[in-house]
Design a protein around this nucleic acid. Structure first.
Lengths: 220, 220, 220, 220
DNA sequence: AATGAATGAGGGTTCATTCAT
DNA sequence: CATGAATGAACCCTCATTCAT
């Protein structure tokens, strides 16, 4: 995970994302938490201020508007995870590794340190101003292209037959939804969850045998 | 689909759900539409009134509060789809039919006539008052039990190996998310979509051969 | 003054201006009073509400914004006085009568029943939104045209030699400023004030003798 | 105009008014400009700071409060013009010269280098704190006394018959209002404007003939 | 002097809800 | 049942001002 930290530190150093230990970074993470828990509109700037320990008015020294807070939460969340995903895909040696990277890192985006921000990105979309949507949409598109490229390769290579667009949408739904039920401190590790999802997508091992689970012949 | 209509008519007749052609029913359907499109808090009672053609104050002759509108949208949506699902499961002759019924009817709940209300149920949950949540949660639990029972059977019968809870959650995410991208007037029918999802869940036909798609041996 | 009342009543009946006895009319007149006394930005909607006896929120049932209140005060003030001025000019039989009408009715606009609204129109101009300024400017232009037409006539007829534009601007300053010092319950009637101003503009009587005041020959 | 500069330099040297080239003087002149253009309350200390090139907080090293800025703008504006007016009146050799000095120097105060500050003095009066008003009122009274003394003399000498108070008020309105329309770079010089106003006040030359304009006999 | 983060009071405005008509 | 004026709490945001650095 140190490579992950490196990427984050680089992004912080370059100013692309806010240092989480800075006051502004604290504000962003608390805001992401509240937006995730209660929704954007039900979260007041007073709530955020109280959580951070400053008065509501002071928030506007860091952000011009509540919308800009939301936008920043979304932007930085996707920038960080986009960078991580790119690095992971580049480091992956096989197509299967790349598939695993997509699933695994999206699970990490959803349930790891950036989980709340990621859920805000996914589920508070309508609360973002039109201008904000335009900006964030570009980043989301970049992110989706990573998925689609790998899924297309996998389909072309015969790993699966489902239309890549369709598969991506089904997976997006399934993976994003994990934030509503997955507990990092529960019995299942993120890696195990990743394996399960991968098995759903790629039921056969490369030798043609079913990937884990029971033998097909035992199914009635 | 006539059996579906029968169930709906019975529920209307019994007073369990509101007649959609009644003023109150109109209000509910317009409200569901607005809640779905803009979110519950961004939808004002003024918006709803305008859509229905009455003044905001008059809404409160039909519902005690805005929360009660949301609660009713959710309640009726789940009551209707719960009844349909029960009927479909009872009519199903095989385990595979029951699996197909679960997936197919959840897709229909999400993208058919009740789609907007179903999406509200799924994605506006946090906007519901605590009392509302308590009430609706019971109905959702009943609904989830239907899924879990069948998935357990399927797992026990060797159709699949994944933990039923886990599989349900992944499927819930994938299926509910379809409301964000599926277009009934697009190139893919709901039945075809249902088949694709089913193939993901049950990759092998009952004779042991892979279900559709390429032969395992062709996978590199 | 009954003709004045008739004009006002017609304007009220036609909906061009608000009935001063209606709640909305009350609000407008209190707002004009406060805007005049403290200025637009130092007057809060809470102040207006308190003055009228309603809560701040209720104001927005009558007006969409504070700016719309200001705009309405200005619009109705100029509509009323424009109508009065037109009627007075039509009723005037001689050029001198028309000059007297201009001065007299502007003094009445400034210091009569609409005095506060008129002062707001003149001195709170910058507080009006750009869109508001565009709207009101058209009405002001109409009003100014009345002045300029008569002044041009008077100049052409040899009543005076000063450029009509220049004279109008000097008079506008002098007359509007009366609202800061003239007291209707003081020793000087508006008619007397009108005469004094007229004497400034038209120093000679029609027989060529100086209009009131001392003989020129006594001036050293 | 060198005598004017001398007076100004003396006042700067004595500390009565701020050196316009000093940081504080810059701040005052920018503030006067903004107060004039947008009004006192619509001008924020942030605006002033931006104009001067410092941050809002730094303003309070020069002035205790925003009110003190306004008060200083007003005070120095009136101190300077009061001194000039006194000098001009002393230098005037005849009553008519004194009248011309009053009008001419008030026009210069309104439209010359101190024009913005003078307009602030006249039109932002209500924005000044009560204590500020008390202070500035004394200076304004001194200034008004200069006018009234000369006007009384002129009336007593038979130059005019209008009550000096009344005439002063009409002239104050007319002259102050010039700041809203007079353009120094337009076709009319301040001297020409001064002559026109003087002709309004003193229609007859000292030989009894009308002062410029057409002969009285030609007026119908 | 200058900075900039923080303050805290108050601004305009929104909105679900009530209720006399 | 419908209206629409009124409510009152809460909202986002602004801004003059303070103060440690």
């Amino acid at each position: 995970m140190s490579i992950t930290q490196d990427i984050k530190n680089q992004l912080i150093a370059s100013g692309a994302i806010t240092d989480p230990s800075s006051p502004k970074g604290q504000l962003l993470s608390k805001a992401a938490h509240l937006f995730r828990e209660h929704g954007f509109e039900r979260t007041t700037v007073r709530d955020i201020g109280r959580e951070v320990g400053i008065l509501p008015g002071s928030i506007f020294h860091h952000f011009r508007s509540k919308d800009e807070i939301l936008r920043t939460v979304m932007r930085e969340s996707i920038i960080l995870n986009l960078s991580r995903m790119r690095a992971a895909l580049e480091a992956a040696e096989s197509l299967e590794d790349r598939l695993r990277a997509l699933i695994g890192w999206e699970l990490y985006a959803t349930n790891g340190e950036t989980g709340e921000a990621w859920a805000v990105l996914v589920y508070e979309w309508r609360s973002l101003s039109p201008e904000g949507q335009t900006e964030i949409l570009q980043l989301r598109d970049e992110y989706e292209q990573l998925w689609l490229q790998v899924l297309r390769e996998a389909r072309d290579a015969g790993y699966m037959s489902m239309d890549p667009f369709l598969l991506r949408r089904l997976l997006a739904g399934a993976l994003n939804w994990t934030s509503t039920w997955y507990r990092p401190d529960g019995p299942m590790t993120l890696e195990a969850l990743c394996d399960e999802v991968l098995r759903l997508v790629l039921p056969y091992r490369s030798d043609g045998a079913p990937r884990g689970g029971m033998a097909a012949s035992t199914v009635r």
